[in-house]
Amino acid sequence: MAKVQSLAELKKLRERIKSNIDLREKGNNIEEMILIKVAMATCGIAAGAKTIMNSFIDELKKEKIENVVVTQTGCMGYCHSEPTVEITLPGKEGIIFGNVDEKKVKELIERYIKSGELVDGIIPNNYKTIE
């Protein structure tokens, strides 16, 4: 690696590598974060959960929404509606959306995450994670 020649260069370098520990920084303030959990058990992955997860990450980056943590979780028990995604806005109950495709990702970000508006595809929550 090249030597850092100025404070500005150091800041630039930091911008480039910061994302490595981003998740840990956010974990420190998890209650202020928007939490997006993508169900990634066998059924979810088969239904394309990985792609959905990545499109969330890409879209959020495009929209410059930073206070959000995208992570994976296990099977939520809605295999009929995979891929499923649970979104928790700070201070609110998590809401689960089913049959999420790439179009839905955009809609969820635009309407639910940005303005808290509910969109179609909500799965009634009859399952609690132990937390």
Binding site: L23, R24, G27, N54, I57, D58, K61, T71, Q72
Partner: peptide, 9 residues
């Protein structure tokens, strides 16, 4: 972009 979704420390 992929990136890590979870860290195990």
């Amino acid at each position: 972009m992929a990136g890590y979704k979870m860290h195990v420390l």
